[in-house]
Simulated scan of single mutants.
Amino acid sequence: MKWFITGGCGFIGTNLIRRLVDEGGHAIRVYDNLSVGGRSDLEHITSFTEPDPDSLEGGPENEVELIVGDIRNEGLVQRAVEGADVIVHLAAQSGVPSSVEDPRHDFQMNALGTFNLLEAARHNKVGRFVFASSAAPIGECEPPIHEEMACKPKAPYGASKLAGEGYCSAYHGTFGLDTVSLRFGNVYGPLSGHKSSVVAKFIRRAMQGKVLEVYGDGQQTRDFIHTHDLTRAIMLAATQPDIGGELFQIATNSETTVNDLAAMLVEILKEETSLDQIDIVHTEPRAGDVRRNYSDTSKAEEVLGWTPEMTLTEGLRRTVRSFQSGQK
């Protein structure tokens, strides 16, 4: 298959590309503005070529190509998508705090950027469009979160992701584009050294000899999913027949408090590293955060044939080891 992956130099993108390269037989075009991940992150995974963005023709011919560009650039997106069999749209403004600080930028990246990709997919007759969403569109609710719940976003980030889901549904219903939206849980794993998500942040701060900062009382809950399971779900979403227009929760169907996560990580860090003193402090709650969050993944199991395999303990241990080995 010919894959077009936006945000491919980022955390999830590099994990997905590594999986595709290991499997072999794929041509991959990465589209990234290098605002988070960079060329060095992609180089860590695979060799690649970098064709001239002004003279693109057809899909990727080499195993991996990198196009440096912004998803808000409609013309470049249209040219870059040509020849792709599947689009995996990972590029996004991905933080709740950032969306609160600059909601206009959040809208432009997540809503307008997704619209540009869908238009490119439609005009280039791409076979499948996989959209990376999250649980944020749901907002505050009584979990577990499932696909039939009404959405009431609490932060601009959730609203912009909901807009993306809505446009995916509309482009399937109106234009027949095979779109699949995946609501990721809290993703962690290797290659997350530059991530601000809680697992990566805790590991990085501990290894720097800094205290672990927990927002509020730490009793807020999340559903943590390892990249081993997540990338498998993305590949199924890209290839499984007869799932156009569908939405899936991709998480682990388990609820973990941030306090419990911190305690688990402290124990694992002490076992796996030379650290013997790791302190935890509580700070002010963060604006826009929901209190409880975990997902019912039964639809993904029934329709995609996907279930998570990695336990949180094993996943955290592997992630700590990846930071130790320099594969951050």
Rank of each mutant, 00 (worst) to 15 (best):
E165D: 10
V180L: 00
I225Q: 07
T179V: 14
V64F: 04
G185Q: 04
F131P: 08
T46G: 12
Q277N: 07
E213H: 05
G7L: 12
H146D: 11
E140D: 04
I138M: 01
G83V: 02
V320Q: 08
R183H: 13
E272F: 00
T307S: 14
V21M: 09
R292S: 10
D242F: 13
D276E: 15
K154Q: 05
R29C: 00
L76D: 13
H146S: 02
Q208T: 05
G288P: 04
E63K: 12
G185H: 05
P285D: 12
I5V: 06
V187P: 00
T256M: 11
I45A: 03
A206D: 09
L112M: 03
K195I: 10
T283W: 01
N62L: 15
S98R: 14
R72C: 09
S298F: 03
L34K: 06
A300P: 03
H194N: 15
S295T: 01
F4W: 08
G166T: 15
G158H: 03
E142F: 00
E140N: 02
V258M: 06
K195N: 09
V21P: 01
E213D: 14
C168S: 10
V266Y: 14
V290S: 13
K328T: 13
D276I: 08
N15D: 11
I138Q: 04
N186V: 07
K210H: 13
Q78H: 07
T49H: 01
N33Q: 12
L247C: 09
H105P: 01
L269M: 12
P60D: 12
D52V: 01
A200R: 12
A150G: 05
V320L: 06
S295W: 04
V96K: 00
N73M: 08
K161F: 13
A159Y: 06
V68R: 11
Q220K: 12
G38H: 03
L42T: 09
P103W: 04
G326D: 05
G7D: 09
G158Y: 13
V88G: 07
V130S: 14
G75Y: 11
E140L: 02
A251I: 05
S47C: 04
R318Q: 02
K154A: 11
E101D: 13
Q249E: 15
F48W: 04
L182H: 05
D85N: 12
T239Q: 13
S295M: 10
E314R: 06
A135C: 12
D52A: 07
A92G: 04
Q93G: 10
E101G: 07
S94M: 00
I234T: 04
C9T: 06
L261S: 08
R321K: 03
P144V: 02
H89E: 06
I17K: 14
R321F: 02
S47A: 13
N33T: 11
V187I: 14
I67Y: 01
P53G: 14
L34M: 08
Y171D: 12
N62H: 06
G59H: 00
G113M: 05
N259P: 03
F129K: 06
K210C: 05
G185S: 01
H26N: 15
A84H: 04
I234D: 10
T311Y: 01
K152I: 11
G193A: 08
S99L: 03
R128G: 09
L182M: 15
Y31C: 06
M207F: 14
W306Y: 00
K328F: 05
A80K: 07
R321S: 15
L177H: 02
D296M: 01
